[in-house]
């Protein structure tokens, strides 16, 4: 790279940095060599802030309603400045937002907020994917031992989320109504054990019993059906858990055996 190419690279790096710094701090310095006052660069800063905030609000509508538009916008600005997109596909932006919320001091009184955001991220991912096809149980081996050794292949369009908070109820309530999630008693509702996957009419959020969640977790982690079934008992019928998993298309038949 010659001197003029290096100078160009420095100038472009400074422009990108000035835009991202300016998302959260309008007084951030301008890059050298720019023939424009701060007002003109502010157009680019605003576009970055507004377009990415809209993208985050599209992914996290329940969070925006829970914290309010003004707080959400301020939090989004800080997030954009500190964790800007690493991919030009804007639909993929925001995976780190739940952890970011979890670290925000202002949100410390709402320990469930990050898990609500984690569920919304999984819902957003499921909204982009095609619904999986159900698996015919008849395609599984009939032989008992072969079946026990079988490892199913987890469908990456499906995800599991466990939380000590009833985040499924919170997201459903906040997405269905613009009001606060009044009437949700987090102290009495059971912890969330959820499976999120694409459905024909949009993302599905399936509430699972702890034992069925453990069964699916074992399948996702590559365990054999025998191990997964052992984790499902005593409160769940492994055959029923398997039938439901296959019907949801959450895992498919893999060829490899233990």
């Amino acid at each position: 790279m010659d001197a003029s190419a290096r100078a160009l690279a420095r100038r472009m790096d400074a422009l990108v940095a000035a835009i991202l710094d300016g998302v959260a701090d309008p007084d951030a310095p301008l890059p050298r060599g720019l023939l424009a006052g701060p007002g003109r660069l502010a157009i680019h800063r605003r576009h970055t802030r507004v377009s990415l905030t809209i993208a985050l609000a599209r992914t996290y509508p329940a969070i925006e309603r829970l914290v309010g538009e003004a707080f959400f916008a301020a939090a989004a600005s800080r997030f954009i400045a500190t964790e800007p997109p690493r991919d030009p596909v804007v639909a993929l932006y925001g995976a780190a937002f739940p952890d970011f919320l979890g670290r925000l001091e202002a949100c410390a009184g709402f320990p469930w907020l990050a898990d609500v955001a984690r569920l919304e991220w999984l819902i957003a991912c499921a909204s982009l994917a095609l619904p999986p096809s159900p698996v015919d149980p008849a395609t599984l081996p009939r032989d008992r031992d072969a079946r026990a050794r079988l490892r199913l292949r987890w469908n990456n369009a499906a995800a599991l989320l466990a939380s000590p908070w009833a985040v499924g109820e919170i997201v459903a309530a906040m997405r269905l109504s613009a009001g606060m999630a009044q009437g949700i008693d987090l102290d009495t509702l059971p912890p969330a054990r959820l499976c999120v996957l694409p459905g024909a009419a949009g993302p599905r959020v399936i509430d699972l019993a702890p034992s069925e969640f453990a069964f699916r977790q074992a399948i996702r982690d590559g365990e054999t059906l025998a191990v997964a079934s052992a984790r499902a008992v005593p409160s769940c019928d492994p055959e029923q858990a398997l039938a439901s998993l296959l019907a949801d298309g959450v895992a498919t038949l893999a060829t490899d055996e233990a």
Binding site: P85, R86, D87
Partner: peptide
């Protein structure tokens, strides 16, 4: 630049 994007 360098894997960081500004959506602009």
């Amino acid at each position: 630049t360098h894997g960081v994007f500004v959506n602009d």
